[in-house]
Design a protein around this nucleic acid. Structure first.
Lengths: 341, 341
DNA sequence: TTGTACGCGTTATCAC
DNA sequence: GTGATAACGCGTACAA
């Protein structure tokens, strides 16, 4: 196995193609780029030569002369988390992978590292930037940079920036309205860390929906705690003690919901017959593995990524927006919230 | 909010810096690049000018003349999955984010799209390529490309390629040896899809370890099925029927292990007192949310990513390897496998 | 020590 | 219709 054979010669350049086709470099360029004023036979000859050499234009050179790289940076702080990935995928397919490539940088929650990555991305002359925060709360703007920026998931603290976020308040209302529609009236809310704006927004939406129905939250207040199953279990036990007749629980995350389900089963309550449960996140592995499978709210992050890419494209074309844009969530109905007979 | 103000003028070039410092472009270049034969005062003047203009060299131009882009491509098929992300993170910090940036492409399991992305990455003249498969099985080589390639997670079918994979067989043995050390003797194996090479490798390692101890697998055969909690529950019920005296279960994934735990609890068995359980994957949310928390095998994918980056760097320096390199896994001991008194 | 000239690969302008 | 020329921004021989 000759190492030389495994690494073929350097890629062909336009000059090689031109030489082989017996034309000048500029003619070859026009021929391959569908430019007018090229004889058909010449065009064919150039194409043939390009094919033969498996020519593929050097995007560095293209970018250098065109002043655009066809590259966008994605600056995240939540790579191991599951939120930036769908955003990334949405962005990827909205841009079209043939036109734009994504340079990924993970700051891992470190502001210094973020600055560092930011510089690196700008040095690479990305055409635009998507900033995905680690948690759905207001985060510091990266400041003024020479390219358009869109914030996704976590909004920027600078109202002059454009931020795209999930509409958590509306989502909380949706969850409760669904429970009401399935015939529930004593609805509790067990959720996670109250320092998360998303937790408070979801709770606010839920409370508003209850109020519109002339109802109060079972237990009086939301049960704030941690984003864990363990918290879900203990909070649900407390909720059952406080309001034994509770007939539905809206959980702030799917993990919390799993804990809620466990506690209900241990207390001898049937789901969904006695108590309905709605989760949040539509985390596939969690929501479909549970018994029963979990009705939950999908943040539609991939859609959020697509919109981010569209807004970024628009901004790169000079059509920039500002402010915070809230995107809708979607309720995914499974077994845990079947209507009451 | 003047849009002009939000998008400052185009980035400064070396020419701007040189002009401001009152020197030639080449002198400015030498000054900034720590080259010799530059008077200290000149160097300082250039640096000051660069600072003032927030100069940052255009990597496109650098790459064009240096024939290297400082960019590697990561071609994955498993973005939404949780396997390529740790690999990516490991690669990122092994390269050093200041030296190399990662271009991410997700083929989403489509061979056509993979070819497409491959071309795009090569057009961008990446210095190297990491290919992360969708599942831990042999996959088609991407063939001969003009840059070094390392396969991670899923090995290439071409022995001339370099592949880095987890040592699943050794990991299966580790799991069983741990159970034996904790005083268990009737050990069953509930695992997932038998078309996964990793499932068979883990089972083989487990069987070999049992044989070395002069024992047989409880139930005779591994319980193959699906990578789901549901399968874990039903398989464990079957295992209990077949071998009521089973005192340990090695599960092929953490999800399967969760199902096993559920079935055991329903059957009135205490974990770890009556039956010990070991999972696989160290999927944080699954393994620490369970009751009790799950002893499990960590694939150390981030380490795998780091090694991939090292091998790629070596190959870019002309020092290429071939074949399949198996990297060790690590047992993470939690509550579900506490030793027997 | 500093500056001039050229090359990296491509595209666009303008002669021919 | 075609081809020479300049330009994109940087690094680096080589000349001064």
């Amino acid at each position: 196995m000759d190492p030389q054979a495994r690494q073929p010669a350097a890629a062909a350049t336009l000059r090689d193609v031109a030489r082989l086709a017996g034309v000048s470099v500029s003619t070859a360029s026009k021929a391959l780029n569908e430019r007018p004023h090229v004889r058909a036979s010449t065009r064919e000859a150039v194409r043939a030569a390009a094919d033969q050499l498996s020519f593929s234009p050097n995007s560095l050179a293209q970018g250098l002369s065109a002043q655009r790289t066809g590259t966008v940076g994605l600056l995240t702080s939540d790579l191991e988390g599951r939120f930036s990935i769908p955003v990334l995928m949405g962005a990827e397919d909205a841009f079209g992978s043939d036109r734009v490539a994504v340079l990924l940088c993970d700051a891992r929650g470190d502001a210094i590292r973020e600055q560092h990555h930011l510089r690196a991305l700008l040095a690479r002359r990305v055409d635009g930037l998507i900033v995905v925060g680690a948690r759905p709360d207001v985060r510091p703007s990266i400041g003024r940079v020479p390219v358009p920026v869109v914030y996704a998931y976590a909004p920027s603290d600078d109202p002059g920036d454009l931020s795209l976020v999930s509409d958590n308040e509306r989502a909380g209302a949706m969850a409760v309205e669904h429970l009401l529609a399935s015939g529930r009236r004593r609805i509790g809310h067990v959720t996670g860390d109250p320092t998360y704006g998303a937790a408070r927004d979801r709770a606010a939406g839920a409370l508003a929906a209850l109020e519109r129905a002339g109802l109060e939250l079972a237990g009086g207040e939301p049960f704030y705690g941690a984003w864990s199953e363990e918290w879900g279990r203990s909070a649900q036990r407390a909720l059952l003690r406080a309001v034994p007749e509770v007939d539905a629980v809206f959980a702030g995350s799917d993990q919390v919901a799993r804990g809620v389900l466990d506690a209900l089963r241990e207390a001898g309550r049937r789901v969904p017959e006695d108590v309905a449960v709605v989760g949040f996140d539509n985390w596939e592995a969690i929501a479909t593995g549970s018994r029963p499978s979990l009705t939950t709210v999908d943040l539609q992050l991939q859609h959020l990524g697509r919109v981010a890419a569209q807004r970024l494209s628009a901004a790169m074309s000079g059509d920039a927006r500002q402010g915070v844009e809230r995107l809708p969530c979607r309720l995914v109905v499974r077994a845990s919230s079947a209507p009451r007979d």
